[in-house]
């Protein structure tokens, strides 16, 4: 039963959805503050390469090396996000163009490949990688075992993150202030909230999450470094935020849905009736387009809109 297609696809869908989830949570935080960051793909790739580099260089026990690597990946992602933040918050550049620039700068033909090639990371397996943390006997439980107990620490950590982000947004003062900054920076400013500060902070945290998402590829899913190993996950994460209506819990559902579609082609390979792998691999992208069309219907947009100030610079002293 644990080898049945459904169980495998769900279990692997969770694993493959996890990088999407991290990246989407990060983008969600940035967008809730009003900053649209289209550089997710680039930030993920830099996170992936730096996390992988760290795990190869840190000569400590496996758990420590992995924790250190995640920290490095988060820092790397945040550093990339800082460029975007500076350009769009302080220098008021166009958020769309700046985000695209970040993806080009950091992405598959840019910094991430430069670092990966320069640090000679290609073609060597990860010295440590995230593995299932529960005992084998638990993993063998019918159905529930592989799905709930067969996952790596990154998966369980992501669940904690979803709960924390959800509580942060709805139950804390800082979260309230954050939402005000994204909805109406003028109102927030008038009440003494530091709009630019909130935007910087959440764009950077968003970058850190994207970096972790990237490292999830290089330390858990792949687990090695390849140029462009995220395969557009960053873009799917951006779309995910839209059709999760900017809500962390829905991000989780969406991420696993797309994770399952990403894994599906691999699961189908052994069946004779399987479609050509390229066509099966295009499923997540096609599904993204379809899902976007669904949520852009008028009724859906009226009920749960994007943060009103998304994509707009806030300038106080201008008439």
């Amino acid at each position: 039963m644990n080898n049945s297609l459904l169980v495998v696809v769900i279990a692997q869908g969770i694993a493959y959805g996890t990088p999407l989830l991290y990246a989407a949570l990060g983008e969600l935080l940035a967008e809730r503050s009003g900053v649209l960051n289209l550089g997710v793909e680039g930030m993920m790739l830099v996170g992936a390469v730096m996390g992988f580099w760290a795990v190869q260089r840190f000569h400590v026990t496996s758990p420590l090396a992995l924790v250190g690597a995640i920290a490095v990946a988060a820092l790397a992602g945040a550093a990339m996000a800082a460029i975007h933040a500076f350009l769009v918050i302080t220098l008021r550049a166009n958020q769309i163009v700046s985000g695209l620039a970040l993806t080009i700068f950091a992405g598959v033909a840019g910094l991430s490949s430069y670092l990966g090639n320069d640090l000679n990371l290609a073609r060597s397996p990860a010295r440590h990688q995230f593995q299932a943390i529960f005992p084998k006997s638990w993993q063998d439980i019918n159905a529930v075992g592989p799905i709930l107990f067969g996952q790596s620490a990154l998966v369980y950590a992501s669940w904690v993150c979803v709960v924390l982000v959800a509580l942060y947004l709805t139950r804390t003062r800082v979260g309230l202030n954050l939402r005000a900054v994204g909805e109406s920076p003028a109102a927030a400013d008038a009440m003494g909230i530091d709009v630019a500060g909130y935007r910087y902070a959440h764009t950077l945290v968003g970058g850190a999450f994207a970096g972790i998402g990237g490292a999830t590829f290089s330390l858990s899913i792949t687990p090695q470094w390849l140029a462009g190993l995220t395969q557009g996950a960053g873009w799917i994460a951006i779309a995910l935020v839209i059709f999760a209506f900017w809500r962390p819990t829905l991000c989780l559902v969406g991420a696993y849905f797309f994770g399952a579609f990403t894994y599906l082609p691999f699961a189908l390979q052994k069946y004779s009736w399987a479609p050509p792998p390229e066509l099966a691999q295009s499923l997540p992208y096609v599904m993204t387009v379809l899902a976007l069309v669904l949520v852009s219907s008028r009724a859906a947009r009226l009920r749960f809109g994007a943060p009103s100030a998304l994509g707009q610079p806030y300038v106080r002293e201008e008439r």
Binding site: V97, I104, F105, G107, G110, Y114
Partner: peptide
């Protein structure tokens, strides 16, 4: 001359020109 340097340069130029518009 590691692969990727060209993208880095392109990205940097774009960043600087974007920032320069300010």
């Amino acid at each position: 001359f590691p692969n990727g340097l060209v993208g880095v340069l392109q990205g940097l130029i774009l960043f600087c020109v974007l920032g320069g518009e300010l």
